[in-house]
Simulated assay, not measured.
Amino acid sequence: MGTTVSLTLIEPNDTVAQAVFDSIKLLEDKLTVNRLISEVMSINLAAGSHPVTVSSSVFSLIEQAQKVSLHFNSCFNFAIGPLVKLWKIGFNGQQVPPAKLIKQRLLLTDPNNIELDTNNRSVFLKKFGMEIDLGAIAKGYIADVAKLILHKYQVYQGIINLGGNVLTLGSPLTNENSYWHVGLKKPFATDDKLSGVIKVKNKSVVTSGIYERFFIQNNHLYHHILDPKTGYPLDNELDSVTVISNSSLEGDIYSTVFYGWGLDNSRKYLQKHQNLSAIFLLKNKTIALINPDNFVFQLIDTQYKIITD
């Protein structure tokens, strides 16, 4: 998945750990677009030609990704694959593509042009050159599956960390009032400096930020969160969005949605959905905490000013 995956358990258990990592490997093999062979790549290679039948788990995830892509007016779009491949941000050859090519690729990113057949569990990309990319949702789904496996083995305390997707089970040790501590990275820091620490129990913590994958060309920063409407990296007031939720899949979805919406529109949504919480790091060194009843935040970097809703 292009990241380090770690599992922390209160008591050593090689059988449980092996079951979790075997499951992660199996799901990655199905969902990746970074290899020629996977269920998702089979769909992409058949674009404009014929539907492809996939496993129930992959079909279910694609259904959810399409629903979110169509429902939210945001930068969440699982059909954005052709643009991701064009920009190559975070990979060899990254550069600003010609405007003409961006316009051409935009025509291949409409999620309405993806036909799902529930009865046959088949997926059809109607236009040649279309590609789906589940990168914005796959890690959250995999983390939730790992949690189910841990519960199957009656493990109810621990941390699953899929590089930016942190899912905590229960609370640490035997103290029910204690919290897991999840670091919130300082944007663009050259080392492991933190903006703050998020304290949670039995919650998912997922961050979407512009500082993990980016490049600079002609003194302008280009990051990996692309705007499906323009084809260019989204430009707003945010450095990152962190979502605290019950499931990691929710965190994946809403961290991307909220980044696309920006602070004001996200705040309006969160005021109506108190089960979700979010932390917004703004470029002006402000940290906005929305629905903070679900977590505790400890400020580390005193350059920031906190506002709370």
Rank of each mutant, 00 (worst) to 15 (best):
W87N: 08
S42P: 03
I62R: 07
Q154A: 10
E115A: 15
N112A: 13
V68P: 00
A146K: 00
H151P: 03
I149W: 03
I102L: 12
L106E: 09
G135F: 04
C75R: 10
T168W: 00
L134M: 08
A99I: 09
P98C: 09
I137T: 05
V155I: 14
V155Y: 04
F91L: 10
K126N: 04
G48V: 06
K88R: 15
V54I: 11
K103T: 11
Q104A: 15
Q154Y: 10
L162Q: 03
G93S: 11
G164M: 03
F72I: 01
D144Y: 01
I114L: 13
G140E: 03
T109G: 06
D133P: 06
V96Q: 09
D117T: 07
G81Q: 07
T118E: 12
P97G: 06
L148Y: 02
S56K: 12
I114D: 13
G129M: 11
S74D: 07
P172E: 03
K147E: 01
L162Y: 01
S171H: 14
N44H: 04
L83S: 01
Y156S: 12
G140P: 01
V84Y: 11
G158Q: 00
V145P: 00
G140Q: 00
L106D: 07
I149D: 06
W87E: 11
R105L: 05
T53R: 12
Q66I: 10
Q94W: 09
F59H: 14
L167C: 01
V52W: 09
L116Y: 15
G158A: 05
